Amino acid sequence: MSLETTFMVVLFILVGFPLSVFIHEFGHAVGVLLTTKKDVHIFVGPRTPENEETIRIGRCHVHFQWSTGGSCAVVMSEDEWSKQTTLLFFLLGPIFSFVAACFFLFMANFVDSDSFLSVLFFWTGYLNVIMFIIAVIPIKYPAMTSQLNGAHSDGYEVIRLIFSKS
């Protein structure tokens, strides 16, 4: 593997993964920010006390430790989660991933196709496509997915919410 290829792979892992996680989790946060007055915490990395707040923009608190996973946390009681807030929360994560995929894949074709930036845009776009698909398919994540063990996908939660009686 050439030095340039190695550099591209390392940069993709160091930048593309956490950026894609942040975009997806920010989508979840937007749903809450638009429909409530609550603060949201976006975690890129584990949701642990060691992952301290890195930056705060208004009601959005971002906690960053390099990782390929993340979450969006909101401190609200169950009765504070309206159907609208919950629906937007679960829809906007995948939608933001899809929009990011379109943007990065467009940019990959817009810049010189032989450039380093084109490759970085392409793989980051492709990663966002994968994140969108994984999030939108209605499933219960298997045990092998560590952080997601037993959780339901965003798509699962949207379908559950649409067909719920309340």
Score class of each variant (00 low, 15 high):
residue 21 V to P: 04
residue 101 A to H: 03
residue 45 G to E: 02
residue 142 P to A: 11
residue 14 L to Q: 02
residue 139 I to N: 06
residue 148 L to F: 13
residue 68 T to W: 10
residue 5 T to D: 05
residue 98 F to T: 07
residue 28 H to G: 09
residue 51 N to S: 12
residue 106 F to P: 00
residue 37 K to S: 14
residue 21 V to C: 10
residue 110 F to G: 01
residue 74 V to Y: 07
residue 6 T to W: 05
residue 96 F to T: 01
residue 13 I to L: 15
residue 147 Q to E: 07
residue 26 F to D: 02
residue 14 L to V: 13
residue 46 P to M: 13
residue 91 L to S: 13
residue 150 G to L: 07
residue 56 R to F: 00
residue 12 F to A: 08
residue 16 G to D: 03
residue 158 V to F: 07
residue 164 S to W: 05
residue 142 P to F: 08
residue 95 I to E: 00
residue 116 F to H: 11
residue 59 R to H: 09
residue 159 I to Y: 10
residue 155 G to D: 05
residue 148 L to A: 13
residue 18 P to F: 07
residue 67 S to A: 15
residue 12 F to H: 04
residue 166 S to D: 14
residue 97 S to H: 08
residue 100 A to C: 13
residue 152 H to I: 01
residue 68 T to M: 12
residue 118 S to C: 06
residue 52 E to G: 11
residue 104 F to I: 01
residue 146 S to H: 11
residue 151 A to W: 04
residue 129 V to K: 09
residue 115 S to E: 11
residue 20 S to H: 08
residue 52 E to P: 00
residue 160 R to C: 10
residue 5 T to W: 08
residue 134 I to K: 11
residue 57 I to K: 08
residue 91 L to V: 08
residue 100 A to R: 02
residue 112 D to M: 06
residue 130 I to D: 06
residue 118 S to I: 06
residue 45 G to D: 10
residue 158 V to Y: 01
residue 147 Q to W: 14
residue 99 V to Q: 03
residue 57 I to V: 15
residue 13 I to T: 13
residue 143 A to E: 12
residue 77 S to K: 15
residue 69 G to M: 11
residue 48 T to E: 13
residue 67 S to V: 04
residue 107 M to W: 04
residue 44 V to T: 07
residue 46 P to R: 14
residue 121 F to E: 01
residue 116 F to S: 12
residue 1 M to V: 12
residue 153 S to C: 07
residue 6 T to M: 12
residue 42 I to L: 12
residue 118 S to E: 11
residue 42 I to W: 02
residue 90 F to W: 15
residue 132 F to C: 08
residue 20 S to K: 12
residue 111 V to L: 09
residue 65 Q to W: 05
residue 26 F to N: 01
residue 17 F to R: 00
residue 70 G to T: 06
residue 165 K to L: 14
